[in-house]
Amino acid sequence: MPLNPTVAVVTLRATLGRRRALLFAIAPVILIVLTLVLRAGRPPGTLWPERVLGDFGFSVLLPLTALVIGTSVLGAEIDDGSIIHLLATPVRRRDVIATKFVVASVLTMLFTAVPELIAGLIAPSGAKLAFALFAGALVGSVIYSAVFVMVSTVTARAIAVGLLYVLIWEALLANFVGGARILSVGHYALGVANAIAPDQALNAGLSLATSLVMAIVVAAGALVLATRRLTSFAITGDSA
């Protein structure tokens, strides 16, 4: 994948600047604190680790953190117009998208998959489930990042559109309408986790093969569309 180190450095500094890392850390801290509180207050043997780490982790922590980071790496620059300085150079647009996508994926992994692993190791459900959730969150971080980078190139209201998608599609329809799971990034992540540590309480609706194939298709499709959109980037709101 053609990455541009200069784009990566500037993107990282822009994304993590102004103490934004603290904002990204809020949800992971909630997950870990919740796990600590539940471990201290509940007897072992109940299904709370799967509910907290699977449902909260994959339906709330993962998509919302990916949304904030995925739309920050590109959408913020498009919003404030500073993207012009990047696009007024011969850098290929696909390199820009690929770099933004990798930066978003790595940051999302850092703020979702790593906390999932830590919380999983704290919970009394065993290391195997912890690593399964970690692997699922890694896959989810990559796919969500591709989707939200793409959304940034399609609409100026990326956060609002992404939030509606997460709350209505991922958190509601995908969990209650069986057919919707085939197009649910959260369920691709759960499918991977469930394949490593099979557990009915995870409510995984897709097999490993289906999850991986769909994950690749969705990520590749999102990145191709994002590249096309950025290649045709036009300055809007022109006063002529």
């Binding site: 541009n4 180190p5 200069t6 784009v7 450095v9 500037v10 500094r13 822009a14 600047g17 102004r18 404030d80 117009g81 500073s82 012009i84 300085h85 990047l86 007024a88 150079t89 011969p90 850098v91």
Partner: peptide, 27 residues
């Protein structure tokens, strides 16, 4: 070709030198 856009949005967290160096690297 070089472009100086009208909008004032630049990477304000960089120093002037870093900004110009970044552009040189992008080229």
């Amino acid at each position: 070709l070089g472009l100086v856009p009208e909008r004032d949005s630049v990477y304000a967290f960089l120093t002037g030198e870093q900004f110009v160096q970044s552009t040189a690297r992008l080229h």
